[in-house]
């Protein structure tokens, strides 16, 4: 049996209780913006899978709008099946909206769209999906928008930072307009040069929760795959009626339990040294 709530949930502000059947929300807090940063050696896509799993869990009513630029539907479907969530069924229930954008910016487009790489059209689709979903079930529903991953949106916009950042800001307005939450995956190591750092700095500014995945500085290990740094900027959390952690930095090591085929984050052995 799975633990009711793990460290990653705690870091994301997800309250998840498997045992109780009460209507506790197991999705991200409304209006939150999560930025996940990873690098070539260490992929952080498992955080996205985890958020998907929690948001689409049976005892939550939230839905997910998923923009995939890196993998086809079958990839996520298989992974989430292993985690105990059937994406194809959720898609049919209209709780999971999947936009396959593998070929975004590559196919022939109408003249007006060439410069923005089809981003305006894409935003229109997202907005429509959210409006449809909201109108069908009242405003109580929390919608999570997931962007996997942002660096490919820049490629689709042919390097126009204005277009890609505009797209991001538009998506961000949806968090306040409809109470959606926004999850963005991006790659930190692309922006290490000073002149190209603007996009990631802007995103880091917008985000409430910042998650960084890095390889272990000590090198390869058999069961630990890297470390996650979570920066929670301290949002007011209605459900807990308290400030949900102040500005703080926590470091965690995570390992993928090979048998469970599941991600189990665990605290590093020396938490007192690493926690600020």
């Amino acid at each position: 049996m799975e633990r009711s709530s793990n460290l990653l949930d705690e870091a994301l502000g997800i309250i998840y209780d498997n045992s109780s059947l009460s209507s506790s929300s197991s999705s991200l807090p409304n209006g939150s913006c999560v930025l996940i940063e990873d690098c070539v050696e260490t992929s952080a896509s498992f955080v996205i899978h985890h958020i998907l799993k929690r948001s689409l869990s049976p005892n939550s009513s939230s839905s997910v709008v998923f923009l995939s630029l890196s993998h086809p539907f079958s990839h996520y479907d298989r992974i989430l099946r292993k985690l105990g969530c059937n994406l194809a069924a959720q898609r049919d229930n209209r709780r999971f909206f999947f936009f396959d954008m593998l070929m975004l910016g590559c196919t022939e487009q109408s003249l007006g769209n060439i410069h923005s790489g089809g981003l305006i059209e894409l935003y229109g689709k997202i907005q429509k999906a959210i409006e449809d979903s909201n109108s069908s079930s009242g405003n109580s529903k929390c919608i999570t928008i997931v962007l996997d991953d942002f660096s490919l949106i820049e490629v689709a916009a042919k390097g126009s930072f204005n277009h890609s950042l505009d797209f991001l800001r538009y998506c961000y307005t949806l968090t306040s307009e409809f109470g959606c939450s926004l999850v963005i995956l991006n790659h930190e190591d692309i922006y290490l040069e000073e002149e190209s750092a603007t996009p990631i700095l802007q995103m880091e500014y917008l985000a409430n929760i910042l998650i960084k995945a890095e390889p272990l500085s000590t090198g390869l290990a058999a069961d630990v795959h890297g470390q996650l740094t979570v920066l929670n900027k301290g949002t007011y959390d209605k459900t807990r009626n308290s400030m949900n952690k102040g500005l703080g930095l926590e470091e965690r090591a995570w390992s993928h339990g090979q048998l469970m085929r599941n991600v189990v984050p665990s605290r590093l052995g020396v938490p007192s040294m690493l926690r600020v």
Binding site: V40, S43, S45, H75, R78, I79, K82, H225, H256, Q258
Partner: peptide
């Protein structure tokens, strides 16, 4: 070897060396 394709799975392949 820096990255190994992970199709349809999120479990990374642990290499004996890179």
């Amino acid at each position: 070897i820096h990255k190994v394709a992970r199709m349809n799975t999120q479990v990374p392949l642990v290499l004996e060396a890179t």
